[in-house]
Design a binder for these strands. Structure first.
Lengths: 136, 136
DNA sequence: CCGTATCCCCCATGATACTG
DNA sequence: CAGTATCATGGGGGATACGG
């Protein structure tokens, strides 16, 4: 990706699997707990208000929701629109860039849904073997 | 927060975006920092030894690598083979189930590589606006 | 309604040392 | 070589209270 970014120093083409790689950091960002959920919701329903979002993602604290939304906004993935009304109304939606994430994210979430059973089975199997050691 | 906590009973069709959802937990697992890297490496190079892997993922501690590999093994995504030789040799490789993850994971990593520039730009823009307030 | 500010806990992660 | 054991820490993340 030969990122000729304004990084401090001449950075050789970044290895996506190397430490400190920007794209790796980005991956961690969007793959974080709440970011996936927020992106998923906004991808499914379109524009959404703060409280609305908070209600859908049952269990998220205001702090984490705000923090997540801010990060996503800063990354240019989510658009935040403040309507100058007397009871404040703020709406969040995916930007064009954010839309490009829907596919990859969908692929991953669908994988987890599809194979969760097999994984659960594998775990039981593993745990079972761990208990009774094959006697020598 | 009236969240459907981990009910130890008959599980209704889980909402992939709900709290305590197994597939969500799984997603967090495989999306975690080192898991992505390990899966990526094993997907690229095939069978790999512990130290070899550790060297490729520059920066990982023995502890985290072991822990990550154990979890992946338990989940049935990675196969661990111990060769009964005098200097211990252990090889790790993706299972069939693990292989099914390559596609989705690849999609995500490629997205992060492809759009990292735009995200970086968006951040600068955002930070720039944050400094000089538009009005007053 | 939409946040920000604080406090605080706990666990993920890292560093180090030891073992089979 | 391939781990396990132990200790230290820092920041993710929750609860709560307050502000615009």
């Amino acid at each position: 990706m030969t990122t000729t970014e304004n990084v401090t120093g001449p950075i050789p083409s970044w290895d996506p699997y190397a430490r400190g790689c920007p794209s790796r950091d980005l991956l961690d960002q969007i793959g974080s707990k709440w970011a996936v959920l927020v992106l998923g919701e906004l991808g499914k329903h379109g524009a959404c208000r703060f409280t609305q979002l908070r209600h859908r993602l049952a269990g998220v604290s205001e702090k984490m929701l705000t923090q997540t939304l801010r990060t996503l906004e800063r990354d240019g993935l989510v658009l935040r629109t403040v309507h100058p009304e007397v009871p404040p109304r703020v709406e969040y939606e995916l930007t064009a860039l954010g839309q490009t994430l829907r596919g990859p994210l969908k692929a991953l979430t669908e994988w987890s849904v599809r194979y969760v059973e097999e994984v659960l089975t594998a775990r039981e199997e593993y745990d079972g073997r761990a208990v009774k050691r094959p006697s020598s």
